[in-house]
Write a protein that binds this DNA or RNA. Structure first.
Lengths: 132, 132
DNA sequence: CCGATACGATTACGGTTGTAAACTGAACGC
DNA sequence: GCGTTCAGTTTACAACCGTAATCGTATCGG
């Protein structure tokens, strides 16, 4: 296989949407304690701390987070990179809905006016790079 | 009320992945009977006809399919457009993972080498159109 | 007419998800 | 020392999902 260092997520384990919110907090800053994560996601979702703890545990079980003891509590750190997760999800969507090709997705976004002028400029310069 | 023509999917109902496979069959050709849909998806998934029927029923309940009696059986027709579904899912992904901006998604796909030369050419020409 | 079929509807059942309360053990204050 | 507090662990529980078997009934072949 690739040999390039295994990256978390044992088996076909997937990260659910609620779990993803927790990962976001930890990708933004790590390590963090459960309470800190609760603080961090508090703005977006209205969860009790118990809920956050459940999600953290599940993520540890899934191999998405590592724990490091800090006195009587744990500090959590992501074991998978945000870019890996994001890349995987993107690929899944492209595969499922667009036959694996990115162009139709792009066309869709364009058609739905989901592209700002800024996006267009940015993509254009990316294209330039790719062509070299 | 809105008046702007409701388009299927009552409430926040979402189409699951298995259900989506059924929708695909019906987007490809409609209307179709349960048996026909079973035939159609048979290639991809190894489902029993019972499973297909369950999925069809759930989709009807969710307001994603309409039924039309044909003798003693039903013919199913999509109530939501594929492009609406696809657009919605794409938007959800872009919102969730890329802060609503398409450029980072594009950058990701590019970086992950998910773009073929063909894709690039296609996107380039789309960009040209957009710019005028 | 009557049994074999073909359909949709009902029921099933284990797994995951969202959401959280209850439990348990360690540490800290007094 | 001893109760309070705080942290993680266990248990809960309904909804949704994947996957299907079973049930009830209308129809078709003979």
């Amino acid at each position: 296989m690739g040999g390039t260092k295994a990256k978390g997520l044992l088996g076909g384990e997937r990260i659910s949407e609620a779990e993803y919110a927790v990962m976001e907090a930890l990708w933004a800053r790590a390590p963090q304690s459960a309470a800190e994560v609760g603080e961090a996601v508090g703005g977006q979702r209205d969860w009790s701390l118990a809920t956050v703890k459940t999600l953290l545990s599940r993520l540890v079980t899934k191999g998405a987070l590592a724990t490091e003891a800090d006195g009587r509590r744990f500090l959590y750190t992501p074991l998978i990179e945000r870019s890996d997760y994001v890349g995987g999800e993107s690929r899944r969507l492209v595969d499922r809905l667009f036959g694996g090709r990115a162009a139709p997705l792009f066309a869709h976004l364009a058609e739905a006016e989901a592209l700002s002028a800024e996006d267009i400029a940015e993509i254009e310069s990316l294209l330039q790079e790719l062509k070299q």
